[in-house]
């Protein structure tokens, strides 16, 4: 156990220590000493910026992500279950997916200007939608035909079939899409705040940069990094629990 901890923590500790030592005497404006960045942390992220920058950002990310998840899975199941609908939608979806999500910002700005939370939530939701939608379509399409027929033979109700066969069977693919969408969502959360004078985590980092408050800017970058790591950890936890049956299945298949 201690050996594993040593292996896992060894390199990060060495890297941070190297950063600390190399930057210790740094007089470079852009690369302040790590000690100065750490010292700036508690004074920069006090209760006020947490309440007005960090939490609203996270709330918008959550809202946009959940909207994308619900809409993406619902539309994905509908499109994936019907051959004609799928063929009809495929090129359109390919095109819409290929548009880099940040380009949506100017387009949304045309409609409503770019102030307030709603436009930001819409941006995040639109960006997260495609990976979830397309993966759901793939997941539903690659469902085992026998399973579907079995459900029909047993006259399972539509709702039961949807829950127990369709959604469950495609959940590994949906999870893969949801994971992609999460990193897109974090990116869009930051980008949507770079437009228009507003508050938020991304806006705060840019505010520090424009005001040449360099150690504070660094604390913001590190905070964003930690947020990305925390969210991916949280996602893995949820995935680990909900897809436990799938891992078991794969394990069993491998052992045969």
């Amino acid at each position: 156990m201690t050996r594993r901890a040593l292996v896992a923590l060894g390199l990060p500790v060495v890297l941070v220590a190297t950063w600390w030592v190399l930057s210790a005497g740094s007089t470079s404006f852009f690369w302040p000493p790590l000690s100065a960045i750490v010292a700036a942390f508690p004074t920069t992220w006090t209760a006020d910026p947490i309440a007005h920058d960090v939490l609203p950002s996270l709330a918008r990310l959550t809202a946009g992500y959940l909207v994308a998840l619900v809409v993406g899975v619902a539309a994905g199941v509908a499109i994936g279950s019907d051959r004609v609908l799928r063929a009809l939608c495929e090129p359109v979806l390919e095109f819409l997916r290929a548009i880099p999500p940040p380009v949506l910002v100017p387009v949304i700005a045309l409609f409503a200007g770019y102030t307030g939370s709603t436009t930001k939530v819409v941006t995040i939701a639109l960006g997260c939608l495609w990976p979830i939608l397309l993966n759901t379509v793939e997941g539903v399409r690659s469902l085992d035909e026998v399973l579907r027929d079995t459900a029909r033979s047993y006259r399972l109700g539509r709702l039961t079939t949807l829950r127990q066969v369709v959604l469950r069977g495609s959940s590994p693919r949906i999870a893969a899409g949801a994971r992609q969408a999460l990193s897109v969502g974090v990116i869009l959360m930051v980008i949507s705040e770079l437009f228009g004078a507003d508050r938020g985590l991304g806006a705060a980092v840019v505010r520090f940069q424009r005001g040449f408050a360099i150690p504070q800017m660094w604390t913001g970058i590190i905070l964003l990094g930690l947020l990305g790591v925390a969210l991916s950890g949280l996602f893995r936890l949820v995935e680990h629990r909900t897809l436990a049956w799938y891992r078991g299945l794969r394990q069993a298949e491998r052992e045969v």
Binding site: I187, V190, V205, V206, G220, L224, G225, G228, V229
Partner: peptide, 8 residues
């Protein structure tokens, strides 16, 4: 770590 964090 979101690459956009590096923008500033």
């Amino acid at each position: 770590i979101p690459s956009v964090a590096l923008i500033p």
